[in-house]
Amino acid sequence: MDEQVTDGALLSAVAQGSSAALEVLYRRHASWLIVRLGRRCADPAVVDEVLQDTFVAVWKGAGKFRGGDDAGAWLWGIAIRRLVDAFRRQPPAAYPLESAEVLGTRESAEDLVLLGVEHGDLAGALHRLSPELRAAVQATVLDGLTTREASRLLGVPAGTIKTRMMRARRVLRKELA
Rank of each mutant, 00 (worst) to 15 (best):
K64Y: 10
A9Y: 01
L129G: 08
R39A: 14
W76T: 15
L114A: 12
M1K: 06
A57I: 03
R128D: 14
F65S: 11
D111A: 08
W76Q: 14
A93L: 15
G77Q: 04
C41L: 01
A123I: 07
P91M: 00
S130I: 12
A168R: 03
D85K: 11
D53H: 15
I78C: 09
Q90Y: 04
T147N: 06
Q16M: 07
E23W: 02
P44Y: 01
L33S: 00
G77S: 13
T146Y: 07
R66Y: 02
H127V: 11
K60H: 01
V35P: 03
E3F: 04
V5N: 09
V84P: 10
K162S: 12
R89M: 11
R40G: 12
E132C: 02
A79C: 07
A93E: 15
I80Q: 02
A86C: 03
F87C: 13
L33T: 04
S130F: 10
R81D: 02
R28P: 11
V5F: 03
R81V: 00
L11K: 03
V47N: 01
W76A: 15
I78H: 04
L176W: 02
P92Q: 09
Q4F: 05
L142T: 14
S151F: 05
L11H: 09
V5T: 14
V5I: 11
C41H: 04
L126Q: 02
L176C: 05
A136C: 03
S108T: 15
D121Q: 13
L11E: 10
V47M: 00
P92K: 01
E107M: 14
Y95M: 13
K162H: 08
D69E: 06
R167T: 01
S18R: 07
S12M: 08
L103F: 14
R148T: 15
H29M: 10
G38K: 06
G8V: 13
G124K: 13
A20G: 10
L154A: 06
L83K: 12
G116M: 02
H119L: 07
V5P: 06
